[in-house]
């Protein structure tokens, strides 16, 4: 790897980090606006035009709040919890292909930080570590509500990660690769995986809601029963980190869904336009972000439509509904490929 690639990667890394943070920041704004619009209200509209400075005001408020560490809490783990939640949320963005290749001079740069050949497994690993942030935070708080929230988060993650993994196995059967770059480039044209794996997409989407702790699966937080769940004892920016990590997770999982099932940066009829490869890359990148925003909107839309599931309903749906469905999906996909490859 020569220096120009290294510099490009460094700049690109910072850009991706900033974009992730800004998108997550404005997701909070969008969430409040979407919620308001669905309830026939206006939403935040005082800070700046259309309330656009509201996220900054919220952030400032978080920073100004008093930092409280309960006397009975385990101090190191108490600080470690939100750090893990935030770090793992941001780490996933590394393997997502944000665009095709960019040609500057003689060099061709890939708009993907790291093209791991086990990209999907890396995403899974990061998502799984993410639950440690919640668990450690909940346990270190030394508060029964926080612990209940942490336990709920853990069992919910385990239950839904199974179904999610199985829906991915079926996807891997169709793509034949674990690298996200390969998966995206295979979907060129209109060969999006959603058309080959509709059931798998549905399972993956449902599990993504559960993995990000979003409504209707927001049982670990559960304001009404657990007064905030795992972040009951948190204040100031540590609370901010937890809340922010949720939005980062939402952004990243939208990106993963768009990558795996909706063709990533591919868009229809791009070959027919006859543009230069750089222009195609930028348009594709824009299209990728449109897909991501559409999924973020879907996340919010569902949140402000559905009430929270009861815990037994959650477990029933995970173990008796989604997992058998995912196994069926694997069998059906496997059978199809077995018989088509015989000929």
């Amino acid at each position: 790897m020569d220096y120009s690639t290294l510099i490009f990667k460094a700049i690109f890394l910072i850009i991706i980090l900033l974009v992730t943070l800004v998108v997550a920041m404005y997701s909070t704004y969008a969430e409040r606006k979407v919620a308001a619009f669905m309830q026939d209200r206006n939403g935040p509209n005082r800070a700046g035009p259309f309330g656009l400075l509201q996220p900054l005001a919220d952030g400032l408020k978080m920073f100004m709040k008093e930092e409280i560490i309960p006397l009975t809490a385990n101090k190191y783990l108490f600080i470690l919890g939100p750090s893990i939640a935030m770090t793992t949320a941001l780490l996933t963005g590394v393997v997502i292909p944000w665009g095709d290749t960019l040609t500057i001079g003689d060099h061709v740069y890939s708009l993907q930080m790291a093209d791991l050949n086990i990209g999907i497994l890396y995403v899974f690993a990061m998502v799984s570590i993410g639950v440690y942030g919640i668990m450690i935070g909940g346990w270190a708080s030394n508060n029964k509500y926080a612990l209940l929230g942490a336990i709920r988060a853990a069992s919910q993650m385990i239950s839904y990660e199974l179904a999610m993994g199985m829906s991915i196995i079926a996807l891997v059967l169709t793509t034949g690769s674990l690298s996200l770059h390969d998966i995206v480039s295979q979907q060129h044209g209109m060969h999006w995986n959603i058309f080959y794996q509709p059931l798998g997409f549905f399972i993956f989407l449902t599990c993504a809601f559960a993995e990000t702790n979003r409504a209707p699966f927001d049982l670990p937080e559960c304001e009404t029963e657990l007064i905030g769940g795992y972040h009951t004892e948190y204040s100031s920016m540590k609370l901010g980190f937890y809340l922010f990590a949720e939005y980062v997770n939402m952004f990243i999982s939208s990106a993963v869904i768009a990558t795996l099932y909706f063709g990533g940066y591919n868009m229809p009829f791009i070959d027919q336009l006859g543009l230069s490869s750089n222009a195609v890359t930028f348009i594709g990148m824009g299209f990728f972000f449109i897909k991501i925003f559409a999924f973020i909107f879907l996340f919010m839309w569902i949140r402000w439509t559905l009430p929270r599931f009861r815990y037994d309903q959650l477990m029933n749906m995970g173990w008796k509904g989604l997992i058998p469905l995912a196994i069926f999906n694997i069998l059906a996909t496997g059978t199809y490929y077995f018989f088509t490859s015989l000929k």
């Binding site: 979407v34 026939d40 206006n42 439509t305 559905l306």
Partner: peptide
């Protein structure tokens, strides 16, 4: 039921605000 609920919320999304 979820789709039905979502169709209700999306119509409210475009409705005139009462504020």
């Amino acid at each position: 039921a979820i789709l039905k609920g979502m169709s209700i919320t999306i119509t409210h999304f475009f409705k005139k605000k009462t504020t």
